[in-house]
């Protein structure tokens, strides 16, 4: 629950606290991905509440975009549903503002650079900061193009979480790790987001190598769809991101039962599997 202290903290500090608490309790971070506005803003607010209560460390809030080239069919379809239902950036920031007023769970926006550039980098970061976002993950913004956003995020105390992938050469991975704030997003597979039945063979070694090279926590995402896979990865990483599986869970529940209960139950299971004591 919120304290005066938590409200005054920067996004980077909030994330730092969240990861420190996990460590103190011998847990690994669980970061569910939720599409903002799928099926509508009200549901998203309720889902944030329920995953927070279920013990999520932080939330990755997917900002719907019309042309998400890094996303597989499940997240693409959720973006299309949200946009068709009238989701906008303004509504997304409202959802975050309402949530962060009374909760300390950090919320990161996953947003295409197309949206950030169109709004103006400074404006976008300011809107994020004012709403209480902890930071950004920008899946289509490589190191070379990121200086301006990096500067604005540092000024605002917001995290700019960067991604390393299986195709990133070691030297480049070190540089990306060095410049990532909040945590480092380790993409498990070369490909788009989506559930996969098996994790890549060399993933464990990659995570171990990255942990030695990085000063920020390593959180692994893409392809983790079950509590068992989360446990396997969490054994060596600092946390896991579960995206398409959460989105699909919400999609299946919609119109049948409470989407927030469904998401909360799934996240509780993930959190349970990521305890190591």
């Amino acid at each position: 629950m919120a304290t005066k202290d938590a409200i005054r903290k920067t996004g980077i500090e909030l994330l730092g606290d969240a990861f420190a608490l996990c460590k103190a309790e011998s847990r690994r971070a669980v970061a569910p991905f939720v599409t903002a506005g799928d099926p509508d803003s009200k549901s998203t607010s309720a889902i944030l509440e329920s995953i927070c209560a279920a013990g999520a460390t932080c939330c990755e809030l997917g900002v719907p975009y019309s042309d998400p080239i890094a996303d597989g069919p499940v997240i693409q379809a959720s973006y299309t549903r949200a946009l068709n239902a009238g989701m906008t950036l303004a509504k997304m920031f409202e959802v975050v503002a309402a949530f962060s007023k009374s909760h300390s769970m950090p919320v990161l926006a996953i947003a295409s650079d197309s949206l950030i550039f169109r709004n103006g980098i400074e404006t976008f970061v300011k809107r994020g900061q004012e709403s209480g976002l902890a930071g950004f993950v920008v899946p289509d913004l490589p190191l070379e193009e990121s200086d301006d956003l990096d500067t604005q995020c540092r000024l605002a105390g917001l995290a700019l979480v960067r991604l390393v992938t299986p195709t990133t050469p070691p030297e480049r991975a070190r540089e990306i790790a060095r410049r990532s704030t909040g945590f480092l997003y380790c993409v498990s597979v070369a490909g788009v987001t989506g559930e996969r039945t098996a994790l890549p063979e060399n993933l464990i070694e990659r995570i171990q190598w990255l942990r030695e090279e990085s000063e920020v926590p390593i959180v692994v995402g893409f392809g983790i769809s079950t509590a068992e896979q989360a446990k396997e990865v969490a054994a060596v990483a600092d946390g896991v991101i579960v995206g398409s599986a959460v989105v699909r869970c919400v999609e299946k529940a919609h119109g049948v039962k409470s989407t927030s209960d469904a998401a909360g139950d799934f996240v509780r299971e993930l959190v349970e599997q990521c305890r190591f004591n």
């Binding site: 650079d113 193009e145 992938t165 480049r172």
Partner: peptide, 12 residues
């Protein structure tokens, strides 16, 4: 111009 793509494509 520039190069606004996921990191997965950078090396290629």
């Amino acid at each position: 111009g520039g190069r606004y793509v996921p990191e997965t494509l950078s090396a290629a």
